[in-house]
Write a protein that binds this DNA or RNA. Sequence first.
DNA 1: TTGGATAATGAATATATATTCATTCAAGAA
DNA 2: TTCTTGAATGAATATATATTCATTATCCAA
Lengths: 194, 194
Amino acid sequence: MQKNRSEKYHKILNSAGAVFAKYGFYKATISQIASRAGVADGTLYLYFKNKDDILYQYIHYKTGIVFEKMNDAVAAGKTAEEKLRNLIRCHLQEFQGDRNMAVIFQSEVRYLRDIQSQIKDISKMYLDLLSDIIEQGQIEGSIRQDLFVGLVKRFILGAVEGVISTWVSAGSRYDLVAMADPLVDLYLNGVKGR
Amino acid sequence: MQKNRSEKYHKILNSAGAVFAKYGFYKATISQIASRAGVADGTLYLYFKNKDDILYQYIHYKTGIVFEKMNDAVAAGKTAEEKLRNLIRCHLQEFQGDRNMAVIFQSEVRYLRDIQSQIKDISKMYLDLLSDIIEQGQIEGSIRQDLFVGLVKRFILGAVEGVISTWVSAGSRYDLVAMADPLVDLYLNGVKGR
DNA sequence: TTGGATAATGAATATATATTCATTCAAGAA
DNA sequence: TTCTTGAATGAATATATATTCATTATCCAA
């Protein structure tokens, strides 16, 4: 099994992404992935240990890219509110830009937890980013003190994921990034009339 | 294939719930389900068309129960805020009371959408309930007018699901229902400091 | 041009398990 | 007690597909 990140390696990863997204991990077959990548079935095994490994590498690769961008986005903000806004916008942008990834992250996360619990999953990283932002906001005074931070984090992430999930189910037709500001507004101000 | 809802039918459904929750639909085997139910493999086929059908019936059955309770909970409230609070509390309560269901709803929804698109999925029903509540709140004046209702619904549902998901991953150790009030507080008031 | 190494192939294999069905069992009727 | 009918069994079957590996192609250095 080669480990160099050749062009073919990425070709296979991309094909796998498309096939997994379309059929789900279990219904996707090695032959489908191979033929979409324009290689023979056996070739996949020169680059990946097995079918599980393909999914694992895919997530690992995508997670790395996305998380780096999210980190940058947060770092680019000064206040907690700016950071939060940047994070949410970045999140929506990345997922809008890669629908296969969005579908796979949505559907196969559970299976992944089973096969590779050492994968630093994107939720965990995300929640840590949020912790810092919330803490900063509380110090600044822009975020309430009387909050259960563990709940707030899940609340924020859950809502974004829900929004993405809807977008995916609806066939990815509308502009997801446009949801960023209204969403942040909901986080900050809630729905209550005044 | 029998259609009467005998005791054995429910025994099998329950076993299936436990096995699906533990291993996931694909890794779960007919033999595991059968042996847990204390019947022979072939017996499952007297009650269910095939493996897919077991999952389908399971979700269908659970959805019916849960949705009825949710409906009642909402109906028991007078103001929009009461209704929302009742709904969220009911939601958390039902899922806390049936962890297998919580896991399965979380993990296998996508597969279900594929096999049985005619299943009135719980999200859809839920979102409709929320629509009514939001609309009522806007009329009452307890909920802001300047909201994109489609987004608010997803925002609310996403956040509850996220909270449940965390609870499941954490091994269902803490009291989920206790999250209801803080969560509703977040929906209503947001996180912004004043 | 050739030889050796590396990469790719795809037919054959191995395995897993969903599903079937000939047989057995159980219970009530005659 | 014997018959009849429907339920239940579980060993045998059928199928699907992940994985292997003997063979072939490709590439590059000498």
